[in-house]
């Protein structure tokens, strides 16, 4: 028996919004430690890794490890039926081929349930090597989203250059060149507005705007985003999900021919 309950459906809606542009379907691996999802996009350029800890749920029970393959378009249709403040419960029997998603209004006067067919997905689990990153940048998630959106107008690619002074995002195309520099913040009143750079070595990497913009769909989940970079390895873009877990995106760099 698997049962996981969250106080607010809005969190699940935001999580789905953060992954459904990259993935059409995905397997949710449930165990007593929580829910994990790991999947590459169709072109094998990016990977989504979602971790939701069992202790972040209002109620969590998972008697046997369970892999639930879900069509994310179908799940989005179901979540559209929930009000943001509704409680949401996901339930499945062991070895079931369906999952039930139930919404309850705060006053318990409206209860709706949706049974969704599960899919048998040919999933490959990937081992992600531990990396000693040269640069780790923490910055406001909204600012990162704004920069990715703005620079996508000028080029398909963005160059991220990180030094101890700051981080520079550049795009160059037919229109010309765009550069956005963010300096490390001195002192800030609000932690969520800070730009913090931990640098071992300066690093310059090029990435496809299209994927960065897809990652920023996670912005409503978190006030800050963390970018971890190292020469010639995938970028890691991480959004914390308060008291519940995190979503990490991995993006392979572009290299000179």
């Amino acid at each position: 028996m698997f049962e996981a309950r969250l106080g607010q459906a809005t969190i699940l809606k935001k999580i789905l919004d953060a992954i459904k542009d990259l993935l059409n379907e995905a397997t949710f691996d449930c165990s007593d430690s929580g829910i994990q999802l790991q999947a590459m996009d169709n072109s094998h350029v990016s990977l989504v890794s979602l971790t939701l800890r069992s202790d972040g749920f209002d109620k969590f029970r998972c008697d046997r490890n369970l892999s639930m393959g879900m069509n994310l378009g179908s799940m989005a249709k179901i979540l559209k039926c929930a009000n943001n403040e509704d409680n949401v419960t996901m339930k499945a029997q062991d070895n079931a081929d369906t999952v039930t998603i139930m919404f309850e209004s705060a006053n318990q006067e409206k209860v709706s349930d949706y049974e969704m067919k599960l899919m048998n997905l040919d999933q490959e689990h990937l081992g992600i090597p531990e990396t000693d990153f040269s640069c780790v940048v923490r910055m406001p998630a909204m600012e990162f989203a704004r920069i990715c959106r703005d620079l996508a107008q000028f080029s398909e690619s963005v160059v991220i250059c990180c030094t101890k002074e700051g981080v520079k995002f550049s795009a160059s195309g037919d229109v010309g060149t765009a550069n956005i520099k963010l300096a490390q913040t001195g002192s800030v009143d609000k932690e969520e507005e800070a730009v913090i750079i931990e640098m071992q070595e300066p690093v310059t990497l090029t990435f496809a705007c299209r994927y960065l913009n897809a990652f920023t769909k996670a912005t409503p989940l978190s006030t800050q985003v963390q970018l971890s970079m190292c020469a010639d390895v995938p970028l890691v873009v991480e959004y914390a999900i308060k008291d519940l877990g995190h979503i990490r995106y991995y993006l392979a760099p572009k290299i000179e021919d």
């Binding site: 990937l126 081992g127 690619s157 390895v233 995938p234 991995y250 993006l251 392979a252 760099p253 021919d257």
Partner: peptide, 14 residues
């Protein structure tokens, strides 16, 4: 010109 690298080369199949 730049080429998009695939992720497969960085990660190992488990």
């Amino acid at each position: 010109a730049q080429t998009q690298v695939r992720l497969d080369s960085f990660f190992t199949a488990l």
